[in-house]
Amino acid sequence: MKDMNYYNTFIEVSEDCPAQTAEIPKSKNENKTIPVLQYEMIAGAPYQHTQEDILFEVFAQRNHIPEEQRQQEWEKFFSKGQPCLRTSSLGKRYGWGMHHNEQGKVALFAVESEEYKALKNDKSIKQVKAMRSSRG
Rank of each mutant, 00 (worst) to 15 (best):
Q72H: 13
F59H: 14
I34D: 01
I42K: 00
I54N: 02
V36I: 02
F56D: 02
P66K: 08
Q69G: 06
Q51H: 05
H49P: 01
T21M: 10
E57T: 04
L55H: 05
Q61G: 03
H49V: 01
I54D: 02
I54C: 04
I65N: 07
Y47K: 10
E40H: 08
T50M: 01
H49F: 08
F56R: 02
F56A: 03
L37F: 00
Q20R: 13
S27K: 15
W74K: 04
E40I: 02
A19R: 05
Y39W: 10
I54L: 07
A45E: 12
W74T: 02
T50G: 01
R70H: 04
E67G: 06
N29V: 12
E73K: 15
N63T: 14
Q20N: 15
Q71H: 12
Q51I: 04
N29P: 05
P66Y: 07
I54M: 03
D53Y: 04
N63W: 11
E67M: 13
Y47R: 08
E40D: 13
V36M: 01
I54H: 02
H64D: 07
N31E: 15
I34H: 01
T50A: 02
I65Q: 08
H64A: 06
E23W: 10
R62S: 10
R62P: 03
Q72S: 15
E40L: 10
E23C: 09
Q61S: 11
Q20C: 06
Q71M: 09
I42R: 00
Q69F: 06
G44T: 03
K28V: 12
E68N: 14
H64N: 09
F59A: 07
L55F: 09
Q61D: 10
Q72P: 06
R70M: 08
F56T: 02
L37D: 00
Q48Y: 11
E75M: 11
V58C: 04
P66R: 04
E40V: 03
E23N: 11
E30R: 13
Q20T: 14
R62I: 06
P35F: 00
P25K: 03
A45Y: 07
I34G: 01
K32A: 15
H64G: 07
E68I: 08
E30Y: 14
T33W: 02
T21A: 10
E23R: 15
R70K: 13
